[in-house]
Simulated scan of single mutants.
Amino acid sequence: MVKKLFHPFLLSLVLMGCNTQPSAQTPSGSSSQIVIHRFDKALFQCIESKDEKLQQALEKEYPQMLEILDKSLFNSADSSLSAVSLNLFKYYSEPTLRNLYTDVIKAYDSVGDIEAALTTGFTYLHSQFPDMQIPAVYMHVSGLNQNVLVADSLLSLSADKYMGIEYPLYKAFFNQPQRNKMQRELVAADYLAGWLMSEFPFTGNEQQLLDRMVYEGKIKQLVLEALPGIKMETLMGYTQQDADWWQKNEGVLWKYIIEHKQLNAADRITTARYFEDAHNNFPVIGAPANTGTWLGWQIVKAYQNKSNATPQQLMQVKDPNEILRVSEYKP
């Protein structure tokens, strides 16, 4: 049975069950390298060549990816590999999408830098969560759909969502704050965030602001610890102007939330506005995108400073009010 879930928060994430599992990886030290399986290249080669032998080789080598990608895009009734392949070939033959795919293959011809970052990140996560299975890592092109696909011990990222802020096609579909996060330097971070979200799924009330804040703050904090070379401002897609805004207005925004009793109120519409991927004037003029995520990270960071909690201990605390209480967060 396939479980399909469009995650409402950090990433566009699809979680799926799969009857067959790829080989997972378990980094135990600096010499254990994460290798990205280039499903994107193999599928592109089939599309370009229309070679039946290459198609058969693709179906033999990547049955899980074909199944998962097909279900995420089409959820087809006919799940045979030959039917799945034909669906995907037709889908990627659309001229705009084919041009996008061609650009992705050129931009991501080499991914050694990403593999190195993933090796660092997953080695750290495995050291903190020894029971965590490290997935087999793939890359795909979704046509500007799901960022991350997760199935059993498989993790794949859609490289066409990371072509750079100025990529021409993006301007017709994405606003500036969204494009700020569609960069190569965030690929490894989003791989890790997607896997963490599948390993530690959200169990709170998505209508409650504090629940969502703390959950997102936990995921961001773990990614930052796993990839020490990246900054939170980069993860958030913030400009220097956004960072300056927080320096001046963090206390103002927190005061507004407390005075309006929004932290634990089950208000879906109000809560959702704190996580919009766009600049807006709610609830304070000039607020950057995703103010809820930033505040959640501040709370989690303060909690760890006060409690000296390990990552494992942090993830074991399920009550966001306990996280807030211990953090003594008062900007």
Rank of each mutant, 00 (worst) to 15 (best):
N175L: 04
M197R: 02
L192W: 04
N175M: 04
E206S: 08
Q208D: 09
E166L: 12
L169C: 08
E166V: 10
N205M: 05
L196G: 03
G204P: 00
Q183V: 11
G164H: 07
Q208E: 12
L186F: 13
W195I: 10
N180T: 14
G164F: 06
T203G: 14
F200E: 12
Q178L: 04
G204M: 02
A189I: 09
E185Y: 10
F173C: 08
P177G: 05
Q176R: 04
D190N: 12
Q178R: 04
L210D: 00
M197G: 02
G194K: 02
F202D: 06
L209F: 00
E199L: 15
R212T: 01
P201G: 11
E199M: 15
G204W: 01
Y191M: 11
Q183C: 13
R179A: 06
I165S: 00
R179C: 03
W195F: 13
W195L: 14
E206Q: 08
Q207W: 11
D211Y: 02
F173R: 07
A188G: 14
N205S: 13
G204V: 02
A172P: 00
K181Y: 08
W195M: 07
Q183A: 08
N180S: 11
E166N: 10
G164M: 05
E185V: 15
A193D: 06
N205H: 07
F200G: 05
K171R: 11
R184D: 15
L210S: 01
Q207S: 14
P177F: 02
L169V: 15
Q207N: 15
E206R: 06
R184L: 10
R212F: 00
Q176K: 12
N175P: 01
A193G: 12
R212V: 01
E199A: 12
Y191G: 08
E206I: 03
P168L: 10
G204S: 05
F202Q: 05
Q208A: 07
L186H: 09
K181C: 07
L192Y: 07
D211E: 06
Q207V: 15
G194F: 01
A188E: 15
Y170K: 03
F173Q: 13
M182S: 01
G164T: 06
Q208F: 00
E166M: 13
Q208K: 04
E185S: 15
V187A: 13
G204K: 00
P201L: 14
S198I: 03
P177E: 03
E185R: 14
A193C: 05
E166F: 12
L186I: 08
K171S: 11
N180Q: 07
E206A: 13
F200N: 10
L192K: 07
N175C: 10
L210T: 01
M197E: 11
Q208Y: 00
F200K: 07
N180A: 07
D190T: 13
P177Y: 04
A188T: 13
N175V: 05
N180V: 08
L169H: 08
P177L: 04
P201F: 14
